[in-house]
Write a protein that binds this DNA or RNA. Structure first.
Lengths: 361, 361
DNA sequence: TTGTAAGCGTTATCAC
DNA sequence: GTGATAACGCTTACAA
């Protein structure tokens, strides 16, 4: 007699209990499975988790019992006991932004594949919101953090997250040395490709929409812009580089100012497609033709880039990849004791269209 | 002597214990707070939760103790005990899609405000993925579900979620009668506005890119298209309405077919901006000019719509609003016993630009 | 008004 | 090999 046959009637009683009442069936518990299989709860646990030595017969019996009862271990109870939740917190300044949404998708897919769930928090573009989000997440005992910071202070970060020992990988925006890992785009290469392309078209008076300097993608691109120009021996007048927020309107405003200059630029490098769209709006208002009056190139190759007028020359990359790689680093960190700190860069390429002057009549 | 003064040295001992070891401080537990305040755990619990009657003195003492120790109740333990997690599951076919990302943001913001966390799952465009996601979420004992289904079967839905009694509100795509609520766009109105605008421009041979009929936004728009045409007494030849998937490429392909017809359409209504972009690609290939050779109007007013060539006439709406409203309905359902089933429609408006022929020379 | 004890569903440390 | 038993951190009858 196998345990299951032996406890058959008990089994039936159990099954009935689980499907009783008005359809709101309470799902089977480990104790139920144990009883059904005729073993103790601890044995059932060991059998299901493959820990410890036990006879093949009982293991099989437990597994079969679990199958029959449709047993699903309670993550809550498990987490309470083991102090690990298999949940990671994901914090971004704005989930609705295409870039972060894509990163989220990449991360979620990777994490899901290795058994982690993602708890999402939107910092609503403020550092304060970010800190709240981190607090909440840590209080929920997430096993790890994926964070695109909007500029958290190092001391705050140490106090809130580093002190808990919860691994955190930064992506897109990096806080140097503070984490177990970081993932960002090849901002330097991308910006250089843009600048050099404009130089190759013969432009010398090149302006730059730099974006916010609170984030890595803003600051690294600005540095790269200056470096690229310097290396090719061109002098960029200070009034041509515009530090500004990431919004569309900001791009419009700054470009407007550029076009009103006594000597307006003949080329414009934009740090993001949002800003580039703003720049296009300003050009339209001023009646300056792209690319003839102003050659425009930008970071971010949006999927609609080819349908704009003119089609945009841009820096392309795989946005999901930054989320995915960040997840990979995080998983490594969560699983190994003493994780090594690593930094990954996601490759970028230049795609040329008409806005830079390529293929123009 | 207040309890705190009385147990001062104990308090110090406790505080020390909590900050011991290598910075990975184990946070204060309810028992710690109770000991610190010199009361039992149950009293501490009551004091902190404002339940039951207790003297103001002890309540204050407990609260002060909690403050001093930086006590944060463990959501895990609480959930295990109370069988409620204050977590809602959010399931979409594709988080990276701008529409779903926006909906997510709206929902997350609303839920966050009333104390719920969101656990995100991406169904990766498949019903199978959706079912997995729902299973996982329910196993985690989410208190509610926000679901943009890719076409789950009613029986499957009943079996998996309805049977658990977990409230679920559908958004974007609706499974009639299966849930406590549903939120969708005014698909009927939006489509009518589009069709009628083209009719007003004098077009009679109007084609339609219908999108996938597995989703509400596809099927409702198709029905509305036919209804709008019929009511104005125009006959639409069957070959002009194209049911297709939502991808860009699909729009290109179908438009290509339309343009190869012996009598190609003079107007085209697209069910989504993705499809419209595909249509624009096809037109470019065929050398047909927009809007002169073909007038194009579409659902979805993307933020770049004004910068396309030609700028797109489109149906605009607040995508975050569908997520937010869905969250509102869900919260109501989670909090009230016997929730009533409700359906909300998010308003849409027509914004005219050049692609329809408006403002053309 | 407050304390004791049971229990939520697991896993881990012991004995046997 | 397997089974009691004790946590994990909280809430809630029930007693006092």
């Amino acid at each position: 007699l196998t345990p299951i046959e032996q406890y058959g009637s008990l089994g039936n009683r159990l099954r009935n209990r689980l499907t009783e009442s008005h359809g709101k069936r309470r799902s089977a518990t480990l104790a139920d499975v144990a009883a059904f299989a005729g073993v103790s709860a601890s044995t059932a646990s060991r059998a299901l988790n493959g820990r410890g030595e036990l006879s093949e017969a009982t293991r099989a019996a437990v597994i079969e019992a679990a199958r029959q009862l449709g047993f699903q271990p309670s993550p809550l109870a498990r987490s309470l006991r083991t102090r690990t939740t298999f949940t990671v917190g994901f914090v971004v300044p704005d989930v609705a932004s295409p870039f972060y949404a894509a990163a989220l998708k990449g991360a979620q897919r990777e994490l899901e594949a290795v058994g982690y769930r993602v708890m999402l928090m939107d910092a609503e573009l403020s550092v304060e919101g970010e800190v709240d989000a981190l607090r909440t997440l840590l209080n929920h005992q997430v096993d790890g953090l994926l964070l695109a910071t909007a500029g958290i202070a190092p001391t705050t970060f140490d106090e809130i997250v580093a002190s808990t020992g919860t691994p955190c990988v930064f992506f897109d925006s990096i806080l140097p040395g503070a984490s177990v890992g970081a993932v960002a785009l090849e901002n330097d290469l991308g910006t250089r490709l843009l600048v050099e392309h404009l130089l190759d078209h013969g432009h010398e008076r090149i302006a730059f929409l730099a974006g916010s300097q609170a984030e890595t993608s803003g600051s690294e691109r600005l540095v790269a812009f200056h470096a690229a120009a310097r290396e090719r021996g061109v002098e960029i007048p200070p009034e041509l580089v515009r530090i500004c927020s990431w919004e569309h309107e900001s791009g419009r405003h700054e470009t407007d100012a550029l076009l009103k200059l006594r000597h307006p630029p003949t080329g414009l490098v934009s740090s993001s497609v949002e800003l580039a769209l703003g720049a296009m709006a300003a050009c339209r208002e001023h009646g300056v033709g792209l690319p003839d009056d102003l050659a425009l190139v930008t970071f971010d190759d949006a999927y609609f880039g080819a349908f704009l007028e003119p089609p945009l020359t841009a820096i392309a990359y795989e946005p999901t990849e930054v989320g995915r790689q960040a997840a990979v680093l995080l998983v490594e960190a969560m699983q190994s004791r003493e994780p090594e700190e690593r930094e990954v860069r996601i490759p970028v390429t230049l795609v040329t269209r008409r806005s830079c002057g390529c293929g123009a009549a």
